[in-house]
Design a protein around this nucleic acid. Structure first.
Lengths: 128, 128
DNA sequence: GTATATGCAAACAATTTGCACGCCT
DNA sequence: AGGCGTGCAAATTGTTTGCATATAC
């Protein structure tokens, strides 16, 4: 194990700030453009490097969209509703039972499909 | 709306066969290599084109992994457990309550996180 | 015969990386 | 001073596409 020494950088701080002040679950490119408003000469490579670091250190979540990666500055456990029509990602809270019906009523959405992805360590790897 | 006219092709049939006879949720490249064992001169472009068609026509599911796409020949509704250590995707069945505990006991897995992604149409788009 | 499917290679788009220089600590 | 961070541009990776030919119907 190796502790990552992370120095302060204006670029990283700005990127994190941008992410924590939006609800749109943006792509790297959107973040890049937004960050440029504050640091006009920041490079795309730097944005990617810092996003990667922020994900590693748990300050930011990486979401799996169709083409590009998306990022989420909200790191407390929550779920998502993704509109098939406009692609918007909404933050949502789980309800314990009658999930879908309850959900549609509460939000005015129309849920057509859902997918639960569990992550952790499988039996095989646990025994290694 | 346009009905897609899909002709028979040995390539597509073989790809679908490969997908329906594995549980590993493979990448396009793995499918390519596997298909080559049957049709040695099949091209990677053809594999991608057919995977896309099979997804469109609902015969195959596309999963969102980290880097590459993964595909699933099992199309009935089900969920996944993904091992953080070895990356394996397991097919799993949801249980109605006490999901995580029940789950760990039933499979011998150690669930560390989960994420429910709902898809459908949002309120805004419903009114268009 | 005609539209769909193919192999091949070139094009693309998102992301990563090597390098020389800059800036925290 | 030493090492992490940066900007830039080139490289890499996964996927898509144009084109001429082959095949299904």
């Amino acid at each position: 194990m190796e502790t990552i020494k992370q120095r302060y950088s204006k670029q990283r701080e700005t990127i994190l700030n941008v992410l924590q002040n939006t609800v749109i679950h943006p792509t790297a490119d959107w973040i890049y453009k937004e960050t440029r408003k504050v640091i006009p000469n920041i490079s795309l490579g730097t944005v990617y490097r810092n996003l990667h670091q922020l994900v590693e250190s748990g300050q930011v979540l990486k979401l799996k969209d169709d083409a590009q990666d998306r990022f989420d500055g909200k790191t407390d456990r929550h779920d998502h509703f993704r509109c098939k029509s406009c692609g918007t990602w909404y933050d949502v809270d789980l309800v314990e039972s009658g999930i879908i019906q309850h959900f549609n009523q509460a939000h005015g959405f129309s849920v057509e499909s859902f997918h639960l992805e569990l992550e952790g360590t499988c039996e095989k790897c646990l025994s290694n």
